[in-house]
């Protein structure tokens, strides 16, 4: 499972980097979203992958799930959500003001 998760994070990051280097705003926004997904998943995994153990230690259990990364990742998700919303609105605004959706405002056919 560790290998699968790391593979997913790697693919998400690679796609995110590729897309955010594109010339048009829509792929860039998509790339940023994928990057933030990768970061959130990475943050979650940093509490180690544990199945079936409680987050709060009680008698009679061995091992626990670290609840802190889950709290961190919630905060990070909310923040990246807000940022994505902002950047979408900004991308629309740039499209309206510059007349095209190129990040530098220059349309290259």
């Amino acid at each position: 499972m560790e290998a699968l998760i790391s593979l997913i994070i790697g693919v998400l990051t690679a796609c995110g980097v590729y897309l955010s280097l594109r010339g048009r705003t829509f792929p860039v926004v998509l790339g940023l979203t994928l990057l933030s997904y990768a970061a959130n998943l990475f943050l979650l995994v940093m509490g180690r992958l544990v199945i079936g153990t409680p987050p709060i230690i009680v008698d009679g259990t061995n091992g626990y799930t670290d609840p802190l990364p889950q709290a961190l990742v919630l905060t990070a998700i909310v923040i990246s959500f807000a940022m994505t919303a902002f950047v979408i609105v900004l991308a629309l605004k740039t499209y309206k003001e510059l007349g095209n959706d190129h990040v530098d405002g220059i349309h290259k056919p």
């Binding site: 860039v28 940023l32 990057l35 933030s36």
Partner: peptide, 11 residues
Amino acid sequence: VINLVGSTLFL
């Protein structure tokens, strides 16, 4: 955009 990438690296 560049600051959003920066935030990702921070995370």
